[in-house]
Nucleic acid binder design. Structure first.
Lengths: 352, 352
DNA sequence: ATGAAAGCGCTAACAC
DNA sequence: GTGTTAGCGCTTTCAT
């Protein structure tokens, strides 16, 4: 086979089939425009013997459409996002949309570049868990006529997009109430910074549950670690969790905590690891609960009690919103999709 | 801002700048063709005030190039692939190539579709961990002038591509020798089917180490589980591992195994889980070692002794091969890139 | 240094 | 039902 042979085009096919390019196009593009069975057949055969592959670039340029939808997540390392992607992919492919998955690597700049590239490629759908502090890039995307779905961001919800999230207020509340039901009263809340709306919601759920049960809590009960970073070889969350464990150990000297709520499973893994290194037993010495229920949470020591977040389902539903508005061209902006979390009891919380 | 306003093109910019489209193109496309500073300036300003975004579709169609490289992995769920992606991404972006990541979801058909879509989009670089039994799709890709790197596949290596892998023979051997050095003589090898070349290599390493140490082994020592499948909500490997545990328990009745080598960490997690459910203690009752060293392996119970595979490094190096041959247009086909694994001792193997 | 014009591969009027 | 043709947005000869 000759590699230097020029790319074969629809014109070549038409010539070989003895038809016009329009006819060839009509059959090759799957148009419903009528073509006689005979011609159709010969076009198909010609295309086949020539090994014709349609050039999507030409098609997309002409039709000003792009059957892809862009997906941007902060990291491939966190199974929560990975499951989200899988939900989106499944839905997208079933609607013949092409999922284009990118990681911003937790860099706002990379995220902006990614969005810009999407614009340049005339991609019209975007689903994103944004880590940028500004909605500008996303707004730019919608200004060019794109539909977007935001899963998470550091800025306020806007009605120019569809928002999709798990009900973190409810989840935070349920988790905390479970701790309380097991007899815990002195509970610490360990988290990465509250620049993410979702983390704030979780915290609000925690506060609500405490207040509803007449349990006091102070600012000192809320422990955060200041810097987000992406180490090259490790899970960032594990590092953060270990740092959190260190800070908690300090706080523990001043107040007899019996339980921890951790902002997510990965962070919890890090906390547990940090604590165990200091010989604190879980759940004997301290209980811990968190959020996500990623696939490893039943495997670690101790098996983690956590709130299951239906990431796939969320991805699927959210994707449907976008594919819908892409094909119908009527948007669903301003609506907020919400799925709720469910308690999964394992062994990291003990009754006292 | 008016959403129905037509897309602004290079022509619009040229008009606003009072230049020809050629001049506008020369500055906007970053060409090194000489343009007077004055004109350049006015083009830039016009582009900026109009909010011009170059249409990559037009550019790619005209230049017959696509600055993207396609990446296909079997699943987003396995952290090994996830780390591989991260290595590739890093390298690709540093060379201004755009990484396009897809999951075949372990479906050969999906994989073929994905490859075909890449061809249709005139993407010229492909890095793949293939699960297809046939190299046809990949060969088709190279026949259209593409460069490809194969990490893993079920078919024989070809010199039409660059192959990149971890030295599984060496890894299998090292792992087994470690077991032997700890006093183990009756060792079982648990794996998903040997349709993957890499699994076969690992097995060969195992056999080699056994033979070199004068240790007998029979077919019965090699335990596999027949079907690969992708459950919707769980890690396929965990299920497979649990099944493997069941089969091993049977075999154990007939032969006093003291150690297991598992084909990878995720499978090992499943095996451990299955064994622990039957109250077998690890490593007291049985030792286990595996391959990958994914980030969770230090966290599970017991912390897993495993061979660390430098997935990121592999991804990075392999990507460089492809970007190189893409920009230089001289290919590196036929060469095989190999990185070697390293033993990480934790607590799942005991000396006897 | 600049511009006019051809053409990448495709689809969609429009005419027949 | 079929074919001719314009043109999507861009780059790149080729003149000047």
């Amino acid at each position: 086979m000759n590699n230097t042979s020029h790319n074969i085009t629809i014109g070549d096919v038409a010539k070989a089939a003895g038809t016009s390019v329009s006819t060839a196009s009509r059959v090759l593009s799957g148009s419903d425009y009528p073509v006689s069975p005979a011609k159709r057949e010969s076009v198909l055969r010609a295309a086949n013997t020539l090994g014709y592959e349609p050039n999507m670039l030409g098609r997309m340029l002409k039709t000003n459409t792009n059957p892809s939808i862009g997906i941007i997540i902060p990291s491939f390392q966190n199974p929560f996002y990975t499951q989200l992607i899988m939900g989106i992919e499944k839905e997208a492919m079933s609607c013949s949309y092409f999922p284009l998955v990118f990681s911003s690597q937790r860099s706002p700049e990379t995220e902006r570049n990614l969005i810009n590239n999407l614009i340049k490629n005339r991609v019209k759908g975007l689903m994103i868990s944004s880590i940028d502090d500004s909605p500008l890039a996303v707004e730019h995307f919608v200004a060019t006529g794109g539909k977007v779905c935001i899963f998470e961001s550091n800025y306020a919800d806007t009605d120019k997009v569809v928002n999709a999230k798990t009900d973190m207020l409810g989840a935070g509340r349920t988790a905390t109430e479970y701790l309380i039901s097991q007899g815990h009263r002195d509970i610490a809340f360990l988290s990465t910074p509250f620049n993410r709306a979702s983390r704030l919601m979780t915290l609000d759920g925690f506060k609500l549950a405490m207040a509803n049960n007449g349990l006091p809590f102070s600012k000192e009960d809320i422990i955060t670690v200041q810097y987000e970073f992406d180490t090259d070889s490790d899970l960032y969350e594990l590092e953060a969790g270990r740092k959190l464990a260190g800070k908690f150990l300090e706080a523990w000297k001043k107040k007899p905590y019996t339980a921890i709520v951790a902002i997510n499973d990965l962070i919890a893994y890090g906390i547990i690891q940090g604590l165990q290194e200091q010989n604190v037993q879980i759940p004997q010495d301290i209980s811990i609960i968190s959020f996500d229920n990623i696939p490893y949470s039943g495997l670690i020591n101790p098996p983690l009690t956590t709130m299951d977040m239906p990431a796939r389902l969320l991805g699927q539903r959210a994707c449907r919103m976008i594919t819908d508005s892409l094909s119908s061209n009527e948007d669903h902006n301003g609506i907020t999709l919400s799925v709720s979390a469910e308690l999964v009891v394992r062994s990291s919380v003990r009754a006292i």
